[in-house]
Design a protein around this nucleic acid. Structure first.
Length: 274
DNA sequence: AGGCGTTCCTGGGGGC
DNA sequence: TGCCCCCAGGAACGCC
């Protein structure tokens, strides 16, 4: 499940190849993949236009053209990579052709991934919270954000309109490192723990980007697995000993997601602040 | 406001 | 071996 580090890894991987490429066409192989536009819209608006930047916002990969963006969301099983082969792989739902002959392949087994055409980032910014790695995302700001809400902490961290980029795997890892139970309520978490949470969010994401993401089942870049999978402390370790205290890791459902916790290390904060 | 269920999809695993 | 059923999950949406 691509989260911020995986999406950033894809961007880092394909950016150099895409900069300056002239768009020729976009070919959907499955009709729902283009969310709000058609190939003829692209032909009218972007034919021969050059990619001037490739970057990430939230979990979107942004192809920047002059006055337009194509935003690509991988959802659960999307893979995006450059190819010059003719033809396309089995689960390819769309590809973009460039004048150079390069192709950008979008492969997506479960077909949840989508392409969006916008003038700018506004529609995405509108429904997304801050970037956790931005310098203006400070401890103070995060503390304020948590206090404004009275929500299950896991549900809140997964909510993209609250904070961008986290998904099920990193949230479990981050909460375990912070010794906060996923059933805690956001505004009941003590200040010291919020500080730990803040630093663990940033450090975990940064470290995962360095390791080129986590490979669990579906994520790889050109078949190369991310290395963060070897670093996972709690996710996927049901019934195994907690690395911190030896208690067997518990799996249950929180916010509708499979959730791994150490019932000993991770404290539930639901009451008054200490 | 916030929680919860449903929808979109397919491959893979468990049970028999 | 084979078949059916259920599950996994990011995000949007509707309902309570």
């Amino acid at each position: 499940m691509p989260e911020l580090p995986e999406v950033q890894t894809v961007v880092n991987h394909i950016k150099r190849d895409l900069m300056g490429e002239k768009l020729r066409s976009i070919i959907p192989l499955w009709d729902k993949v283009l969310h709000n536009f058609s190939p003829s819209d692209i032909h009218k608006e972007l034919n021969g236009k050059v990619i001037i930047d490739v970057y990430r916002r939230a979990k979107f990969i942004i192809l920047q053209f002059n006055g337009r963006i194509i935003a690509i969301h991988l959802r659960m099983t999307g893979k995006l990579y450059i190819s010059s082969d003719s033809g396309h792989p089995k689960h390819c739902t769309a590809f973009i052709e460039f004048n150079s002959g390069k192709k950008l392949i979008f492969e997506d087994v479960r077909k949840f991934g989508r392409f969006y055409l916008y003038n700018d980032l506004d529609p995405i910014n509108h429904r997304h919270g801050p970037e956790p790695l931005d310098s203006n995302f400070t401890v103070k700001k995060f503390q304020g954000m948590l206090l404004e809400k009275k929500r299950n902490i896991k549900a809140l961290l997964l909510d993209q309109s609250f904070l961008s980029g986290l998904g099920n795997i990193y949230v479990d890892e981050i909460l375990w490192k912070s010794k906060i139970h996923s059933n805690s309520i956001s505004n009941a978490i003590p200040k010291k723990k919020v500080e730990a949470l803040y630093h663990n969010i940033r450090n975990t994401l940064k470290e995962a980007i360095v390791k080129k993401g986590t490979t669990i089942i579906d994520f790889s870049v050109n078949g190369e697995s991310g290395k963060y999978a070897n670093m996972l402390q709690v996710f996927g370790r049901e019934g195994l000993e907690c690395f911190q205290c030896g208690t067997l890791i518990n799996k249950n459902k929180v916010a509708g997601r499979g959730t791994y916790t150490c019932q000993t290390c991770q404290k539930v904060y639901k009451g008054f602040n200490s």
